[in-house]
Computed example of a mutant assay.
Amino acid sequence: MIPLLVCDDSMMARKQLIRALPAEWPVTISQANHGEEAMLVLRQGLAEVMLLDLTMPVMDGFEVLAALRDEGLSCKVIVVSGDVQEEAIRRVSDLGALAFIKKPADPEKLRETLSRLGLLDTPAPASTSSAPAPVAVPPRPAFELKINFRDALREISNVAMGRAAALLAKVLGVFVQLPVPAVNIFEVSELHMTLADAQRGERFSALCQGFIGDGIAGEALLLFHDSEIADISRLFKWQPKDETETSEMLLDLASILIGACLSGISEQIDVRFSQGHPQLLGLHGSIDSLIHVNQQRWRKTLAVEISYSLEGHNVHFDLLLLFTEDSIQRLSHKINYLLN
């Protein structure tokens, strides 16, 4: 039996990945919630093959690959990640990963990759006059992973933000550093506190874009810190002459990020979202004014918070997907269908 380690901070992702494994592959499976846990297993020599996520807390997948190389540890690593930026794929290859598979892992793609790497092959029995019949692989024990709604939505958002980052990276020629998304249900006062924390004492510009589909509705809210707009302009190779042109530039960036992120979510949960046009909520404003204008429609909301930053640039912006309270039941139903 081959000792296999599945390392991902999402229980949903681990469950999907374990389900996608070839049934005949003779493996014993262990799991890790993040890279630090994985390294404990690897240092004991308890994993011959590892399926590794990139975006994790404590210690991410890039750091795990670097640690394996630096410590001279032997393990065949296949990265399975939602971060599909071309630069991310190049970096993990340089760090020693044997292959890259995008999330959610397609069973046939996973099988083809394992076969190409020779990991599905088993040694042929020694030639004798009466060769024994091949030994059947024992049934793999079922993993009963208790997946809650927030974990599942966080993983769906993780995949979606990775696709949005790949598009942004291609348009701007940058590497986008991805966080682990945060999922919370807020009262408007709590949302106020979250946005105020994101503001970090600065003034900002804010844009929103509404979306609706199959009983699920909400708004995507994108916050830009004013101190970073000049850096965004340089990346776009566009020097706005006035606030009208600044607004146009930010609306273009919002269309890229919000559109790709919503597309990634809709594809996973099989919902077609109708999207409104991005709207500017205000330039150089304050959190208080934003909350005051929108407090009726954001009375209670399910919020997914994603904070992007661009490597090597002073650019950091916050994307919040704000689902209405009425959408939670339908969204939960779609996610449960996806899991089962």
Rank of each mutant, 00 (worst) to 15 (best):
L319F: 11
A142Q: 08
G45Y: 06
T122P: 05
G82D: 08
L46P: 14
P57N: 04
G45I: 14
G35M: 12
A23E: 12
V135T: 07
N33W: 13
F62V: 13
I89L: 12
P240V: 10
L331F: 04
F149M: 07
S307M: 09
N33R: 02
L110E: 04
F323H: 03
R14S: 13
N314R: 15
L223A: 14
I2E: 09
K102W: 09
V174N: 04
P278F: 14
A105H: 00
K300N: 15
Q209W: 07
L281S: 02
D326M: 11
A164I: 04
A303C: 10
Q268V: 05
V64N: 04
P22L: 06
R90F: 11
A164T: 06
G264Y: 09
L68P: 08
E144M: 06
S93M: 01
A47M: 09
N340W: 11
L21V: 02
V304W: 06
D231A: 13
A166F: 00
F211M: 01
P134C: 13
S81T: 00
A23G: 08
R154W: 01
N336M: 06
G173K: 00
I258L: 11
P107C: 15
T113V: 06
L339T: 07
N294W: 13
D231H: 04
P132K: 01
L338Y: 08
G201Y: 06
L195K: 00
E48A: 15
D288N: 02
I306T: 05
E305K: 11
M12T: 04
E71P: 00
A254Y: 10
R90G: 02
D60H: 02
N314G: 10
G35H: 07
L331E: 08
S255E: 09
A97T: 07
Q209S: 04
I269C: 09
A23T: 15
A136P: 02
C208D: 07
T301G: 03
A67L: 09
R140V: 01
